[in-house]
Design a protein around this nucleic acid. Structure first.
Lengths: 347, 347
DNA sequence: CTGAAAGCGCTTACAG
DNA sequence: CTGAAAGCGCTTACAG
């Protein structure tokens, strides 16, 4: 049913019905109630395309994923949080999949030119990320999940990766460890660089020289954790502790350690930083892992809030500020980094 | 830039440009090339809302997820496969999140009334699922991921859950096990019922009575696997083998077994049925799990193919048939069920 | 408080 | 092979 038909059933003009449905103040209360009731009864909903054409807003926000690799467990947690917030405003998520960084840029060009979404969420930023400049040029509003050095008037949300890893490293140092291996994400990704900085800072505070052979970069998969850990274990002076960037790489590292015939929690200490997954928890792994945490699901919900704000026409700088401070304070209150009770002292 | 502006740059009418871009045959070859080249150059793309209004097709397909629980690792794998196929046709995925089964029905009503998507993907069907009838009434085209008893002219895709579990159970029986615990999904979900039937059938073939105390139902989380397994281990005659419905529940079961002081792979046999996750593989767990497999990512891609076909106006029955047979034959060729090399014989 | 009508940016019969 | 114009279903100045 379209507006014309619906309005005629009510013996009202399209104008009045449209205004009643959109909550305009100049409609008489009785009329509004009658319209709202009838809309429910007949199941009338404005056609999104017509609405988009008339108003320029389509009630959907976009998010682009690069290939299969990006569709991991973190993604589904983030999407769950994001969706839970957006559903309250009946805003949908438009997911595009691409298979390269270049294709991702084209996806944004397409989304912008065809006016398919009201805003997009950028994630996994790189140092000096070309996407920021592109979206700015395209005038496609966006929020960044993660931090970036790029200048601009945009909102972003991030956890304090520097501090999380600095604390975890310090904790291992407190326990007496001096050779601490670090399984990090890919170089060039902002979060990985921040973590590297946090790792370095903790070592520096104790005057310990960073041994580059003890840092490894790669995907957060157990395969990569396995390979990198095997490399660490082949070193002349093998590490006495390992800091894994995710639960998946921790699993791979554990396997490498087991294969080498040594024991996690006895011969070598292992800490993993990761998010909270509802279907699996680190405590349930064998042997129990110590972890630091950040809830990527909560981040999704918060980003949803920010992007809705942006769509309402609020200045993006507001989002950035609230994002930055609210989140950081959550971290400071210790919601993000838990006590690392199970890490094992240097023997 | 809109069509009017773009057409005037080319000194052509909107009609001709539109036809050239849409691949209509009546446009002169030279004209078409000129238009296509200019579109790339200026970055012109038709406005999706206008296109949707004019044609009734919006180039997006919908998928609804119920709450956080449904956003698990299987979801991201499925979405990855689906997206990889849809991107080739520049069709996007519209994700809606809801928090109840009733809300899910409303989401379809909304999507249909507002004409937001060209089709939807239904997943995780229940026995006698009300969604099928609703979508049929709404005339919203759909493909079902999973099997359903509902009648109707719609396409669907499923793995052979009955046979996968029948085979796995038979395998354990071959190894001498007689008391086999089964960690299944929720009752009422079609896949769980099929698995239950497969389990029952394998036992029946050997004339073994099904002990209802050895079957448990719940979410595929390690928490649920843990709890159910604890229950099994408390039985007077505890099982000598366990069949876990997913890797997550297998992890929980392993933990319960460990807590009970017995050893997987020595005192008790464990098989898990699950999909292939790129970021973690069952071989990497401690101790190594035996698994049967089905690639949910491949299913996503195949469903993408089917839904695109549906959008092109092909009869849905074609999809159903091709879905049914192609997929089943893949299973028969052994792609889905792997040898269960590591299951341990009954001592 | 209500309505007639222009306009959003496309597609597609219809006419040439 | 090309174009002028109606129509898709809304919103929103403008007029009353």
């Amino acid at each position: 049913m379209n507006l014309k038909e619906f309005a005629s059933k009510l013996a009202l003009s399209q104008t009045t019905v449209s205004r009643a449905l959109s909550g305009y103040p100049e409609v008489k209360q009785a009329t509004r109630e009658r319209v709202l009731k009838a809309a429910l009864e007949y199941g009338y909903r404005p056609n999104t395309s017509a609405l988009g054409l008339a108003t320029g807003r389509v009630g959907a926000i976009g998010i682009v994923f690069r290939g299969g690799g990006q569709f991991g467990p973190h993604t589904s947690e983030f999407m769950g949080g994001l969706g839970s917030r957006l559903q309250q405003d009946e805003v949908d998520i438009l997911v595009s999949t691409v298979d390269s960084r270049e294709a991702e840029l084209n996806a944004y060009r397409r989304l912008a030119a065809s006016k398919r979404v009201d805003a997009v969420i950028l994630h996994s930023p790189f140092v000096d990320d070309p996407r920021i400049a592109l979206l700015t040029t395209l005038r496609l509003p966006f929020i960044v999940h993660g931090r970036t050095e790029a200048k601009g008037d945009f909102g972003w949300l991030d956890i304090d990766n520097f501090d999380a890893i600095r604390q975890a490293t310090s904790h291992l140092l407190d326990l007496g460890h001096r050779r601490i291996a670090f399984l990090n994400g890919h170089r060039g990704q902002v979060f990985a660089e921040h973590r590297q900085d946090g790792y370095r800072a903790a070592l520096q505070e104790r005057g310990i020289a960073l041994d580059p052979e003890l840092s490894g970069n790669g995907d957060f998969t157990d395969e990569m954790g396995f390979r990198l850990m095997q490399g660490f274990l082949k070193l002349e002076k093998r590490p006495t502790a390992v800091l894994a960037g995710s639960m998946m790489s921790a699993l791979g590292a554990m396997r490498a350690i087991r294969v080498a015939g040594i024991k996690v929690g006895e011969d070598i200490s292992l800490i993993a930083h990761d998010d909270v997954f509802p279907y699996i928890s680190p405590e349930n792994l064998v042997p129990t892992l110590s972890t630091t945490r950040s809830s990527i699901r909560a981040a999704g919900a918060r980003i949803g809030e920010m992007v809705l704000d942006l769509c309402r026409g609020h200045r993006p700088s507001t989002c950035a500020r609230s994002g930055r401070w609210n989140w950081s304070s959550a971290i400071r209150r210790g919601r993000s980094v838990r006590p690392l009770a199970r890490a094992v002292p240097f023997p």
